[in-house]
Amino acid sequence: MAIQFLLALNRQGKTRVSKWYVNASDEEKWKTESQVHKLICSRDHKNQSNFVQFQSRKLVYKRYAGLFFCFCIDVQDNELSYLESIRLLVEVLDSYFNNVCELDLVFNFYKVSEVIDEMFLSGEIEETSKDVILQRVQETAKLD
C-alpha cells in the first residue's frame, strides 16, 4: 500500500480535503487528522525537511499559502516522488479553479474529490500528466 491518506489542512487544523485509502472508522480518521495537524504545525518550516515519521509510516507534506497538503505513505516509498505529487496536484487544482484558493476547495469539495480520483486510486498513482488530468475533468464538466 502506498498512500494511506491524503489531506489538506488549514493552519487552524480544519480539514479541507481528506481522502482515505485504508479502512478506518470516522473516529480514527478525525483523530489521525488532528494528530497530523499537530505534528506538522510543530515543525520548523524553514529549516526542516518535508518528511516526518508518523506512527509506523511517514508523512510527506508541503505548505501552499494557508494549506498543508499531506500524504501519508509507507516507509519504503519514495518521499520526493510524493512530494512532487503534491506539487502536481496543486498545479492541477490551480489551473482547474483558475488560481485556486482555500475557499474554492471548500465550496467545490466534490469537484476536488473528482480531481483526486483522476490522479490517485486505491492509494496508488493513477495519472501523472497534468494535461491528461485537466482534459478529463474539463470533459466531465461538460457532460451534463
Binding site: 486505491s122 498513482i125 493513477e126 495519472e127 501523472t128 500528466s129
Partner: peptide, 9 residues
C-alpha cells in the same frame, strides 16, 4: 503511461 504506471502498481 497512465495505464503503465497503474499496471506497475
Amino acid at each position: 503511461l497512465g495505464v503503465a504506471i497503474s499496471a506497475v502498481s
